[in-house]
Design a protein around this nucleic acid. Structure first.
Length: 437
DNA sequence: TCTGGGGTCCTAGGACCC
DNA sequence: TCTGGGGTCCTAGGACCC
């Protein structure tokens, strides 16, 4: 129930959602101040489509995810500056930002590469606003990335607030959705599809029952909606009412690891696909070991392009292991076995990927629950550990120094990484350090 | 010519058990 | 002809997120 709000009211808990503006573009601009106010885009892995846009580009009406070849003329006409994605750089900037946020708030939930929920307790709205500006200015000073801060009593409202902060410059990057006054103004003009957790399909279904905006959803009958839809939507409705329901976001433990790429040139030969999947499996297995996990399941998918007139085919298949493993050799063997099952000649493959799942933090299978973890390690397994440790040690020093023979051609070829417009690794590679005149 | 990559959660329905 | 009922566990697929 809405209650009367006074400016001196102290809130038990408030969320400040800190959200970087146009994050990838902002990262590129840190080292290229000349690009401030100029239209900038960042492209996907294969330089295929647009995955980040500056404000100026959004204003031109260029949508997220559009293929670059479709906007070539716009890029020329408006002299849009174009970058390949430099994830090394973005991840490094992200972790610097998160460290600063953690120094400013004891309760930080990192939600994505460019977003974090900060919780503060026993604050008034004015105190929260002051804090938000302080955080925003600190990030701007130390990192040089502009952020927006949304303040509310629930995460869903905080998301809406940050969206509001972003879209109107007069708020200077901070907006509070605490007061009923603010909610009464913002919710009716918010389309249901803009709400966190409501995508295209749910929006369609909500439209069918004549719910179009956030206020209508907030006022809908909770029990009926729970029956009609699902528990998530019920939570969203509570959150719109200001109740703090979506508590746990913190990723307890990662549940799966995926490594996939589109190919620069389509692949038709099975051997080429083997090479690629071998390389992907090695990457995924390396990640798995860095998480100190073993997996019981490996899945492979291969597919042709969704576009064009060429024959379409896609396949996905999994294999389970009796003993959880993190051995690249075992995993690669499994990957190849699956490829043998699903590969079909006469198709042009555009993309493939490896997924590891069903993790366990030891090699014990269910049946040996009470066995001593070390006593049932056979010599083979001990040897496997040793080889993997050596592999990782060497590769941590210099990437791709050691790899299985089955990946060799792929490694030389690099046939999936087309990045013609890559910026330097300013912060993670000594050779790319920015130079001051 | 050219269309990203990496995740999580929920649910329905099948398998299986007593 | 008539063909229990209730429970759990697992999995694939859908929907959503950035």
């Amino acid at each position: 129930m809405d209650h009367l709000f006074t400016e001196h009211e102290v809130f038990q808990k408030l969320y400040l959602l800190c959200d970087c503006n146009n994050f990838f573009v902002s990262c590129e601009r840190i080292f290229r101040p000349d690009l401030e106010k100029r239209p900038v885009i960042v492209l996907s892995n294969n330089d295929g489509c647009v995955i980040a846009r500056s404000k100026e580009v959004k204003a031109l009406g260029i949508p997220m995810g559009i293929a670059v070849f479709k906007i070539q003329d716009l890029i020329k006409r408006h002299r849009i500056v174009t970058f390949s994605s430099n994830f090394n750089l973005y991840l490094d900037i992200s972790s610097r930002i998160m460290r600063i946020l953690e120094s400013l708030c004891p309760e930080v939930e990192i939600y994505s590469v460019d977003e974090a929920f900060l919780s503060f307790r026993n604050l008034t709205e004015n105190e929260a606003l002051d804090l938000a500006f302080k955080i925003k200015n600190t990030i701007a000073t130390y990192i040089g990335v502009p952020i927006s801060v949304g303040i509310a009593t629930s995460k869903t409202l905080a998301k809406l607030a940050s969206h509001e902060a972003k879209s109107h410059s007069e708020y200077e990057g901070v907006f509070s959705l605490i007061s009923t006054l603010a909610c009464d103004r913002i919710l009716p003009q918010t389309q249901v599809g803009e709400i966190w957790g409501i995508g295209k399909r749910l929006q369609e279904r909500l439209h069918e029952i004549k719910i179009y905006n956030a206020l209508q959803l907030k006022q809908s009958d909770l029990k009926r909606m729970r029956k009609l839809f699902n528990i998530n939507l019920a939570h969203t409705i509570c959150e719109l009412r200001g109740e703090d329901v979506i508590l746990e976001l913190e990723s307890h433990n990662q549940m799966q690891i995926m490594w996939s790429r589109s190919f620069k040139e389509k692949i038709t030969a099975k051997e080429d696909l083997r090479q690629a999947l071998g390389a992907f499996t090695a990457e995924a297995a390396f990640k798995l070991r860095s998480l100190k996990q073993f997996c019981r399941k490996l899945s492979i998918f291969i597919r042709t392009s969704y576009f064009g007139t060429q024959a379409k085919y896609q396949a996905f298949e999994s294999l389970s292991f009796d003993i959880p493993t993190h051995d690249t050799r075992v995993l690669t063997q499994a990957a190849f076995k699956i490829l043998d099952l699903i590969f079909k000649e006469d198709f042009s493959y555009a993309k493939a990927g490896v997924i590891l799942s069903d993790f366990s933090n030891s090699r014990l299978s269910q049946t040996s629950l009470f066995a001593d973890p070390n006593s049932n390690l056979t010599e083979d397994l001990k040897r496997s550990d040793l080889i993997m440790q050596t592999l990782d040690k060497v590769n941590l020093k210099k990437r791709n120094t050691l790899f299985l023979g089955s990946q060799s051609l792929y490694q030389q070829d690099k046939r999936y990484a087309q990045k013609k417009l890559l910026s330097p690794n300013y912060t993670t590679d000594f050779n790319d350090l920015p130079i001051l005149k």
